[in-house]
Simulated assay, not measured.
Amino acid sequence: MVMIKKIILKNHVEGRMVQQSDFDVQSVEFNYEAVELAENEIVIKLELVSVDPYIRGRLSAAKSYAASYKVGEPMIGICVGRILKSNNPKWAVGDHCCGELPWMEIFKFNGNRGIYKVNDKLVPLETYLNILGVVGLTAYHGMREIGEPKSGETLVVSAAAGGVGSIVGQIGKIKGCRVVGIAGSDEKCEFLKRELGFDAAVNYNSPTYRKDLRLACPKGVDIYFDNVGGKISEPIFLLLNQFARIPVCGAISMYNSAPGDSVGPHCQVHLVRTSTRMQGFIVTDYSKKNGEAIRELSQWIVQGKLKGKTTITHGFDQIIPSFLSLFSGSNTGKLLVKMDNTNQKSNL
C-alpha cells in the first residue's frame, strides 16, 4: 500500500484571517506504478509549490478575477512537478512540468491541460516560479504597461522584499530610476540596499515611517508600485508628482479584513491634483506579451542585472504554514515549498 497526502479546503473563509483549521491534510492510497492511465494522462510527483497572495482571494466564495476553490476538493496552485509515468507522447518519465497543479504528493493529470515543460539544466527549477514565472511576469508587465519608468524618475515599491516587489525594484534600477523600497523590518531594508541595489529603503513599522519616506523621496514620487494597500500606502499619495503612475498589483494588508473594516488611503484628491493614473491589473491582462517579457527577463538574468531571491521551506506539511506566513511578512523574496523533508529553512 502506497499512501500519499493531499490538502483539502474545508470551508470558504470570509472576513477573517485564514487558519490552519480551514484546511484538511488527508492521506489516501495511490499506487502510481499500478494505476492505469487513459490516453494523454500522466502521473506527476510534486516537487516545488509556490504559495502566493492571490490564493487568499480564491478561498472566498465572493466573485473575483479567479474562480473560488471548491470546498471538499484539493487546493491548487502554481507548482513544478516531475513525470513518474506517462501515456502522453508530449511527456517522458523524468520531464519536469510547471503550471496550476493540485496540492497532492502524487497524482494523475491530463498532460494536455495547462502545463508546460521546464528544464533544470538551463536554470534552477525555482527560477520558473520566480523571475521566469508569474512573479517575474507580474513585475515586468506592471512596470512596462502601467509604470512606464523613465531614467531619473523616483519609483517607490511596497512589499519590496517580497517576490514581486524585489523584481520590480530591480527593473526600476535597470531603467535608471531612483528606487525606494518599503519593507517591514530594518533587516529587510538592509537587504534591499545591500543585495538588490535599492537607493533607499523604509521600514513601515518605524514610528518615523512618514518622515523617513519623505526623506527618501526628496524629488517626490513618479511611480508607486502598490502591493499592499491600506495605511502603508496612504502617505505616498502626499508625495506624488505631476502625471505619476500607480500600478496596483495587490492589497495584502486588507485581504483578511471583514467588509467595512479596511481603512485604505483617501487618494482621490491627490490623484486629481497631480493627474495621476492609478490602475489595477492582473498578470493575465498581458499574457499575449509573455514571450517578449520572458526573453527580456532572461537576458537580464544572464547579464547579472536581475537576481531572484527565494525563501524555501521544506516538506509537504509546510505548505499551509508557509502560505499563512505570507500575511505576517516573514519571507524575503519569493516563498516556495520544496517537497523534501529536511525540516529546515534556507535562503538561496
Rank of each mutant, 00 (worst) to 15 (best):
G15S: 12
G147H: 09
E292L: 07
A139P: 03
G77L: 01
F198I: 04
R214A: 14
E292H: 09
G136W: 03
K345M: 13
P265I: 03
W300C: 09
Q19T: 12
V337N: 02
W300F: 15
R113S: 15
F225K: 10
A244Q: 10
V337W: 04
K288H: 15
A34V: 06
K345P: 04
L137D: 00
A258W: 07
D226L: 05
G181Y: 03
G181K: 06
K305F: 10
A38N: 14
H12I: 09
N31C: 10
G308H: 07
V228I: 14
S233K: 08
V302L: 10
A61E: 12
G304I: 11
G15K: 08
I294Q: 05
L46D: 04
A183H: 08
G280K: 06
D52R: 00
L215D: 13
P149M: 14
E234R: 00
N110T: 08
G15H: 11
P321L: 12
T313C: 04
M143V: 14
V135T: 15
F316P: 07
G147K: 08
V221H: 14
K211M: 14
F30T: 02
N341D: 15
S166C: 13
S328W: 08
N290A: 07
E145I: 06
K305N: 14
Y32N: 09
Y204H: 14
Y128L: 00
K173Y: 05
R16K: 14
L196K: 03
S50E: 02
V49S: 02
G229H: 02
Y65C: 11
V164G: 04
K193R: 05
Y204M: 13
P102A: 02
V118C: 02
E100H: 09
F316C: 08
N347L: 12
D24S: 14
S298W: 13
C267K: 07
R194W: 00
S262P: 03
L336Y: 02
Q299L: 09
K338C: 03
P89K: 11
S166D: 11
E73F: 10
E47A: 08
Y54M: 13
R194Y: 01
Q19K: 15
Y65P: 10
K288E: 15
V179E: 01
R178V: 05
D120P: 10
K309M: 05
F316G: 09
C189E: 00
P321S: 10
R56G: 00
T208W: 12
Y54D: 06
S185Q: 04
I83D: 11
N110D: 15
K150C: 13
G165Y: 05
C217M: 05
C217D: 07
G77Q: 00
T332E: 11
L326V: 02
D24P: 11
S68V: 07
R113N: 15
K338F: 01
A38G: 13
P218N: 06
S50M: 01
N40V: 11
L155I: 00
P247V: 13
I171V: 11
A34D: 12
E100K: 07
A61W: 08
E105V: 05
A66H: 12
M75P: 12
V168G: 02
F323R: 00
F281V: 03
G165N: 06
F30C: 05
G94F: 04
L297W: 11
L84K: 12
C189I: 00
I78A: 01
C267H: 09
K211A: 15
G172C: 01
M1L: 07
